[in-house]
Simulated assay, not measured.
Amino acid sequence: MSQAPAAQRWVMAGYDGSEQARSAVDWAAREAGSRGCALAVVNVVHWPIPGPRLVPGTDEATQELTARTQAEALLADLADELGESWPELTVRTSVESGRTAETLAGLARQAELLVIGEAGQGGLPRVVLGSTAAEVLHTCERPVVVVRPAGSPDGTGPVVVGVDGSDISSAAVAFACDFADRHRRELVAVHAWTDLPMHAMEPTGGWAEDWQDIRRRGQELLAESLADHARRHPDVVVRRTISLDRPARALLDAADGAALLVVGSHGRGTLGRLLLGSVSHAMIYHAPCPVAVVHATGESRAEPSAR
């Protein structure tokens, strides 16, 4: 895939011919149109392909050529379909060879965001819910959206974002506010007070904490975290939620029927270890909607984070 021109803004999607990957491409196409970007669709042929040869008795070079030819045919058909559905969208396709996660993360450095499906096959094996997904989410510098089949059926649900007051949380809020503004969605900002089980907070089973004070401090944190972004997006309706539940449960509950759930790749305190830990795994495996994972160095180019 040739490097995008400096003036070109684009959204990138991984595609391998699977139903999940096609859902990701459709989501990416809508988002690219909303952002006024081009769409780049990439099929990564991980060579050598594990398992039996595509054509028994042929040499490795012929096998790789066959795999690339098949991938190019998939992309050609996809480009035709996208042209019919989004005639004004600029679409570029490319077949690349290499390790899937490394290749996608490298190409996505020039993109506004990378969109992948929750599972795959062929050239994009198990890109989510497996080791490849963990590597993509951990190494990609740009925001990564994992498209899941559930979510708001009509696409009109709110945008949910986890907030903990950290820099990475600010990047997630910036991404969420920009998305909510462009798609005219309500923004639900969730602050979970603790990641400990409720029964573990007091050995005697009593309640030593001042819950009213906890809620007050949570509201103050949300107000401070959202202030700059609210000024940039005055038309976005914001609903603030303070939860005494664990972050994973609080976010999953809030995301029921949502258009998008946005989380930081890591954080502090209540939303710490949000990626590649128990909370992030819960989001990727069980979130009832698409999930956007935002890194501190991978903020939305549409709105740089307020630090």
Score class of each variant (00 low, 15 high):
134 A>W: 13
57 G>K: 07
17 G>Q: 03
96 E>Q: 09
180 A>N: 09
138 H>Q: 15
42 V>Y: 00
21 A>Q: 01
64 E>I: 10
5 P>N: 08
64 E>Q: 15
275 L>W: 13
167 D>V: 09
220 E>F: 01
15 Y>A: 00
222 L>T: 09
281 H>D: 12
33 G>V: 03
129 L>S: 12
166 S>K: 08
22 R>Y: 00
127 V>T: 11
271 L>C: 08
39 L>I: 02
85 S>Q: 12
45 V>P: 01
169 S>P: 02
292 A>D: 12
276 L>K: 08
307 R>F: 13
129 L>P: 04
99 R>K: 10
93 T>L: 02
260 L>P: 06
250 A>H: 02
42 V>A: 02
41 V>A: 00
89 L>K: 15
282 A>R: 11
23 S>F: 02
191 H>C: 03
52 P>D: 07
148 R>I: 06
160 V>Y: 06
217 R>L: 06
101 A>W: 05
98 G>V: 07
232 R>P: 01
283 M>Q: 09
303 E>S: 15
3 Q>Y: 09
131 S>T: 14
81 E>W: 00
296 A>S: 11
189 A>D: 13
139 T>V: 14
291 V>G: 08
164 D>T: 03
12 M>H: 02
259 A>F: 11
27 W>I: 05
139 T>L: 14
224 E>M: 10
280 S>R: 13
306 A>S: 14
